[in-house]
């Protein structure tokens, strides 16, 4: 089998072209493979775990293809990037369809409470949360942000489209947060794993910078 630098996990939920094209754009010298083969995911040096649609369907399709084990292995052992539902699935449970997640992290996936949300002008805030919103980076005790934020200013806008957000039981994994209108966790990190609620593949230069950082990341 040829070398796979980056595997994009394909479990049949939607379009992965944008993710793979963006990775190819930032790393033209790397091999990027969109795959639903557990062996290929296990052999890849890095794994990107995207997702769109409804989380219960995503989990079901992931299991239907026998991908759970290889995704969990990657999440614990190699540079791993979760995107959107790929972040949400890492948690224990989602309000969406009362579904169980993969349980890598303790915590819940919750729905925005549309009816109670207003901006500073009193305008109703819409759900899905759709568009460009700011990500505030969390710094460590030495005032340093995570390596994947390198070259990205604190407060930079990324593109979001989602109705649910993650609420980690332990906030220590939160490495980025966003306001809509309350603060929610928009990026998490632990060891070899980084996962974001927004879509870096659709976030113009800032998103490409984050993907570039991931492709070169040595956790």
């Amino acid at each position: 089998m040829r070398k796979i630098d980056i595997a994009v996990v394909d479990y049949g939920m939607g379009n992965l072209r944008s993710v793979s094209k963006a990775l190819e754009h930032v790393a033209p010298e790397k091999s990027v493979l969109v795959t639903s083969c557990p062996d290929e995911i296990s052999k890849a040096e890095r794994v990107v775990f995207p997702g769109q649609g409804a989380m219960p369907d995503c989990i079901r399709e992931l299991d239907a293809r026998g991908l759970r084990e290889s995704v969990l292995f990657a999440a614990h052992n190699k540079p791993f990037l979760g995107i959107c539902i790929g972040l949400q699935m890492l948690f224990e449970h989602s309000e969406e369809g009362d579904a169980a997640g993969l349980g890598v992290f303790q915590g819940q996936v919750k729905r925005f409470a549309a009816a109670d949300m207003h901006d500073e002008h009193g305008e109703k805030l819409k759900v899905p949360h759709m568009g460009w919103n700011q990500v505030y980076q969390v710094v460590d005790s030495e005032n340093a942000a995570h390596a994947l934020w390198q070259g990205i200013e604190n407060g930079t806008r990324f593109y979001y489209v989602h109705s649910y957000y993650v609420a980690p039981a332990d906030q220590v994994i939160t490495t980025g947060y966003t306001r809509y209108p309350s603060e929610f966790t928009s990026a998490i990190a632990q060891n070899n794993l980084f996962a974001v609620q927004f879509h870096p593949e659709k976030s113009a230069t800032a998103g490409l910078q984050l993907l570039h950082n991931f492709v070169n990341w040595q956790p």
Binding site: D119, E120, L125, H129, G131, W132, N133, Q134, R157, Y160, R179, Y180, P181
Partner: peptide, 8 residues
Amino acid sequence: MLAKRIIP
């Protein structure tokens, strides 16, 4: 907070 969008 969320920005308003311009869509050509």
